[in-house]
Design a protein around this nucleic acid. Sequence first.
DNA 1: GAAATGACAGAGT
DNA 2: GACTCTGCCATTT
Length: 103
Amino acid sequence: MTPFARRVLAVVRSIPAGRVATYGDVARLAGATGAARAVGNIVRDCHDPSVPAHRVVGAGGQLGGYGGQEGLKRRLLQAEGVVVHGRRIRGFAGARWPGRGRR
DNA sequence: GAAATGACAGAGT
DNA sequence: GACTCTGCCATTT
């Protein structure tokens, strides 16, 4: 476990229910702007139940790869209040975190 | 130390 | 709007 990975996991855990963040955002919050791929790498390897990885989506609100059961991912998001339409998220701008500071 | 991999992002076609 | 290609960053072998 690297310090960066630890930061990324901490950020993901900071994502409140009903909200979603993109890999790029998580990377930036973790201190590595543009390290979206690295974030995905870490989250994938760190299958931790305390890490709501299903709240981490791709840019534009796309669910992303998620090699496992992607249907499960979108189901979890919808269960938390996130409206998922097909492979994308409806109202992503409003469900995004930290978004605009959730005013 | 270098090369390959990867739950991505952005621009171009 | 959807598909393809390139670029970036961090980890792992």
